[in-house]
Design a protein around this nucleic acid. Structure first.
Length: 415
RNA sequence: GCGCCGUUCGCAUAGUGGCUAUUGCAGCGGACUGUAAAUUCGCGGCCCUCUGGGCAUCGCUGGUUCGAGUCCAGCACGGCGCA
């Protein structure tokens, strides 16, 4: 993998901006950055075909997930299929996330048996209730973290599995994406400073193990060796963020190897994009790409690019699409609202996507009411196109030397 | 005509005489940021001085009872069976 910066932004007052435009070159093609990368967790960008993702969305790469593909169909199958891209009929660049995030999102017990809120309130309530019965309610836990790795239960059949940094890298090599991520610990936003600090330290130790394992596997299988991105953690604490970024950014093995790029992890609040992301990007080496993990509302993308992010991934566009929500110029629409039943206009009159050019709000509303799956496809194409093109416009603005004004204009549109 | 069964929110359902009448679907609205998500959470009779309170309501009419969706009688409607 090779990263080239084409243009850096210089602010009107002559000060240096973190924003830049560049090109990531991989064995399967290039990614023009900044870029929004659609998420295809289980080797599919849900509800779409790869033709649609390439031609109608205009995406440059897709990101799949190690945890999910390891459980199903299994990394060996993907390896035998010829790798992730071949398996899913995506000829462009691919990423895999390491599975570290799943240890967090599946609801973990951390520290002194403290319960972590799962993805929705209900999960946390169930966990809280079981607390009264026994402090070691391993039945209700899906994953458990220790210093060596994570033990978790399969969401498919409940069977027990274990990921370590080494195992995650091995699986990711089997899956065969162009860019893979180090196995990290993503602490919950509710975690206190001490825990965040511990997660940063653990993520650092694991990062080194990932780097070592990757180096080992590269030698064994040099033809398809992926680029490895290290992950920065630290929550909303400036000292932890800067420390983590310095550690991961400068980490070098005795062989001279270091990370090819970086992921910025954690759960973010709205305000964090302009602060936490900036702290991190100020510390990371400038000549390597930075990926902001899991972030992608329109405003986040604009602020992310302004603060030095090169690539983004986010499930929001496809998840929202499947439940009838669409991004439009000035916010969001819920196509299931009664008002759209007889609205024969386009979804977004300013959008040039295939869905907006060819289908009415009334038709989309009908598809969702009738639970026809085409609705999810058409809205996914639109939402992905919408986000991909926000970032493309920002890229063009950087190349044209008009980033500041375009940024301000777009921020006005989306706030 | 006789016998049996049934009638509970738009539809479908639950409901040992006792507090606020259940659940699903449909309806209306909300949420969703490295996807346990084509998921999920609210609301859903009327009225008021609305962080609370009041009045209704289980086909209809009457009865038993401190208390009836629930028990009894009659009526209406529907289903099945027999004539």
């Amino acid at each position: 993998m090779k990263f080239t910066i084409q243009s850096k932004v210089v602010n009107a007052d002559g000060s240096k901006s973190l924003a830049r435009a560049g090109i990531i070159k991989t064995a399967h093609g290039i990614i023009e950055t900044p870029a929004f990368i659609p998420v295809g967790t289980k080797a599919t960008v849900k509800a779409t075909t790869t033709d649609e993702v390439r031609d109608k969305v205009g995406a440059g790469a897709v990101l799949a997930n190690t945890y999910h593909l390891y459980l199903q169909p299994g990394d060996e199958i993907i390896k035998r299929a010829g790798g992730l891209g071949k398996f899913m009929n995506w000829s462009g660049p691919t990423f895999t996330d390491s599975g570290g995030f799943q240890a967090f999102s599946l609801g973990t017990v951390k520290g002194r048996g403290k319960k972590i809120v799962g993805e929705n309130d209900q999960v946390s309530i169930i966990n809280d209730q079981s607390d009264h019965k026994s402090s070691e309610d391993s039945e209700s836990m899906m994953a458990k973290i220790d210093d060596d790795g994570v033990t978790f239960k399969s969401v498919i059949d409940g069977s027990e599995h274990r990921f370590t940094p080494e195992r995650s890298i091995e699986i990711q090599h089997n899956i065969g994406a162009d860019i893979i991520f180090a196995f990290d610990e993503c602490a919950t936003p509710g975690a206190d400073y001490e825990y965040q600090k511990k997660a940063v330290e653990r993520t650092k130790l694991w990062a080194e193990r990932c780097l070592n394992e990757n180096s080992k596997l590269k030698i064994e299988n040099s033809a398809t060796s992926p680029a490895l991105f290290g992950i920065v953690q630290g929550g909303r604490h400036e000292d932890l963020r800067r420390m983590s970024a310095k550690d991961i950014g400068s980490m070098t093995l005795s062989s001279g190897e270091s990370f090819d790029g970086f992921g910025i992890g954690g759960s973010f609040d709205k305000d964090d994009i302009g602060t936490a992301v900036r702290w991190v990007c100020e510390e990371l080496p400038e000549n390597k790409p930075r990926h902001l993990l899991g972030i992608g509302e329109p405003v986040d993308l604009i602020l992310g690019v302004a603060n030095g992010v090169d690539t983004f991934d986010c499930v929001a566009p496809t998840r929202l699409a499947r439940t009838g929500a669409a991004y439009v110029g000035n916010g969001r629409l819920n196509l299931l609202n009664a008002q759209f039943k007889d609205d024969f206009g386009p979804l977004d009159s300013n959008c040039k996507c295939d869905t907006c050019k060819n289908y009415s709000r009334a038709y989309l509303a009908h598809l969702f009411r009738a639970k026809e799956m085409l609705g999810a496809t058409l809205l996914s194409v639109h939402n992905l196109y919408f986000l991909v093109n926000i970032v493309k416009r920002l890229r063009q603005a950087i190349l044209d030397g008009k980033f500041e004004e375009v940024k301000e204009e777009m921020l006005k549109d989306f706030s």
